[in-house]
C-alpha cells in the first residue's frame, strides 16, 4: 500500500465522527436531516471498506457454484428459464439461497439493523 496512515476507512470515520459530534447539534430542519443522511452514508462506506473485499470473493464463489461468472449471466438465465436455474426444485432452491445470501451481504454493509430485525 503506497499510502500513509490513516487508512481510507479511518479517514471516513474521522469525518463521520466530526459530523456527529460538532455539526449535528448546530443544525436543524433540512440541514440536520441531510447531516443525518451524510452520517448514514459515511457509516456505510466504512462498513464496505471493512467487509467488501471478502464479500466480493464469496459472491463470486457462489456464482461459480451455480455455473455463472457474473450477476448479469445469472439474471439472464433466470429470465430465460435456463436449466442452470430452473431444471428442478433443488436447482431453484440453490439459486434462491445463493441470491438471498448475496442480499444479506449487501444488507450487512447498507443497513445491518434491517437484517437483524428480520433475518428470515
Amino acid at each position: 500500500m503506497p499510502h500513509d496512515v490513516p487508512t481510507a476507512q479511518q479517514l471516513v470515520e474521522s469525518v463521520r465522527e466530526w459530523l456527529e459530534r460538532d455539526v449535528l447539534a448546530g443544525t436543524s430542519g433540512r440541514l440536520q436531516f441531510h447531516t443525518r443522511v451524510a452520517i448514514t452514508v459515511l457509516s456505510m462506506v466504512e462498513r464496505e471498506l471493512e467487509l467488501g473485499p471478502e464479500q466480493a470473493e464469496r459472491h463470486l464463489e457462489r456464482l461459480q457454484m451455480l455455473g455463472f461468472g457474473s450477476d448479469e449471466e445469472l439474471s439472464r438465465a433466470i429470465r430465460e428459464g435456463d436449466d442452470r436455474t430452473d431444471s428442478s426444485v433443488e436447482v431453484q432452491e440453490a439459486v434462491r439461497a445463493a441470491v438471498w445470501q448475496s442480499v444479506r451481504d449487501k444488507l450487512a454493509v447498507a443497513n445491518p439493523k434491517y437484517l437483524d430485525a428480520d433475518p428470515g
Binding site: 441531510h34 443522511v37 456505510m44 438471498w100 444479506r104 449487501k106 454493509v109 443497513n111 434491517y114 428470515g120
Partner: peptide
C-alpha cells in the same frame, strides 16, 4: 444529492 445517492443502497432492503 447525497440523499438520492444513498437511496440506491436501499435496494437490498426490498430484495430481502
Amino acid at each position: 444529492s447525497h440523499e438520492l445517492a444513498a437511496i440506491g443502497r436501499r435496494v437490498c432492503e426490498n430484495e430481502h
